[in-house]
């Protein structure tokens, strides 16, 4: 498997994701310029210029028409995916940490970090795409103040259950579900003991996997919020994704960026690890990065994946035929043949 090395960003990658159809790859970096690439050839299609700070998160809507980006310059911007034009800017009082489209692309939500006297906030905006952007309200439809005590910070958010609930992960290892109408906490679980770096869902949004600094990734059931599986490693996990067509988990991480300089690339463990979804066993690694992997994304067709790292590179990998043909290690029926 020979990856395509996507060189375009000047600073470390913060987030990578495919669009719903799997033909575009969006990447966010600390260099202020979100970029879109061809998911098949690795060609750089375009950039979205306008942010003044590191871009932490982005989300493209289902029809690949509008892109939302969350930036440390305290704005969230909406872009026309095709032309690269800025559609609208939504000002916040603190750095915007995460952004997510609602189902149907008529609303979206952001999380912003505390800044000066502004508290951490979840904001939900309405943006009917069929009306002109000028008619949209600049003020959020709903603002939820995050609890100030313990200084917990939100790290990710996702709309769930047909926009009825907002799923938010925190840096104390907890997950809260908020009601999108009144902002009340519907449910709360604490899967991890340390910060949850990332969360990702399967395509149907029925399973999710959290990746945490406590060196594990955990698989949960979305409907009952029940813990299903744990994937253990020996390093902080920065991102984990569920394969769409195989019972596999891809998991990336490494030491935190601060202590990287003290060890060699060999020891830093900057590989993507492959785990079996059900048996929780590791069966493969893909090496290549020379900084911790910050973000992973797998193409919805399950034939390729992208990893973005602290080293500023995105590596686009296309799976070998032998991986695509790989069968479950345990045969369906018990056989008398040993090994």
């Amino acid at each position: 498997m020979r990856p395509i090395l996507l060189k375009g960003h000047e600073r470390s990658i913060t987030y990578v994701n495919y669009n719903y159809d799997g033909d575009l790859l969006f990447t966010a970096s600390k260099d202020n310029v979100p970029t879109v690439w061809s998911a098949n050839t690795g060609e750089r299609i375009g950039t979205y210029n306008g942010h003044q700070g590191a871009v932490w998160d982005l989300d493209c809507n289902k029809f690949s028409t509008h892109l939302l980006t969350a930036s440390a310059d305290a704005t969230c911007k909406m872009w026309n995916v095709e032309t690269g034009e800025e559609v609208q800017t939504f000002k916040h009082r603190g750095p915007v940490r995460g952004v997510a489209w609602g189902e149907g692309s008529q609303c979206f939500a952001t999380i912003s970090d505390p800044f000066m006297d502004a508290v951490a906030m979840i904001s939900i905006y309405d943006c009917p795409l069929d009306s002109s952007p000028e008619s949209w309200s600049q003020a959020p439809r709903l603002e939820i103040e995050l609890p100030k005590e313990n200084a917990v910070k939100a790290t990710n958010l996702v709309f769930l259950n047909l926009n009825e609930a907002l799923f938010v992960t925190f840096d104390d290892g907890s997950i809260r579900l908020y009601d999108v109408v009144n902002g009340k906490v519907l449910n709360m679980i604490t899967p991890h003991t340390k910060k949850i770096n990332n969360v990702s869902f399967n395509r149907e949004k029925t399973l999710f996997i959290t990746s945490s600094v406590d060196t594990t990734a955990k698989l949960y059931d979305v409907v009952k919020l029940e813990h299903l599986k744990t994937y253990k490693t020996d390093r902080p996990v920065n991102d984990a994704v569920i394969s769409p067509n195989k019972e596999h988990i891809l998991l990336g991480g490494g030491q935190d960026a601060m202590s990287v300089t003290t060890t060699s690339g060999k020891a830093g463990k900057f590989e993507t690890k492959f785990f079996h979804l059900v048996y929780e066993t590791e069966f493969g690694v893909v090496k290549g990065h020379f900084g911790p992997i910050n973000a992973l994304a797998i193409n919805p067709d399950g034939r390729s994946y992208a990893s973005g790292a602290e080293d500023g590179y995105i590596r686009l990998h296309f799976f070998d035929q032998s991986y695509i043909n790989m069968k479950d290690p345990v045969p369906d029926a018990p056989t008398e043949e040993a090994n």
Partner: peptide, 25 residues
Amino acid sequence: LEETKGKRLQRKTFRDRVADLRAVY
């Protein structure tokens, strides 16, 4: 035999769970 028996059971439980979730979806 012992191991695969356990794993097969594990897999079946997991797949049933996923099927239930898909029904909700």
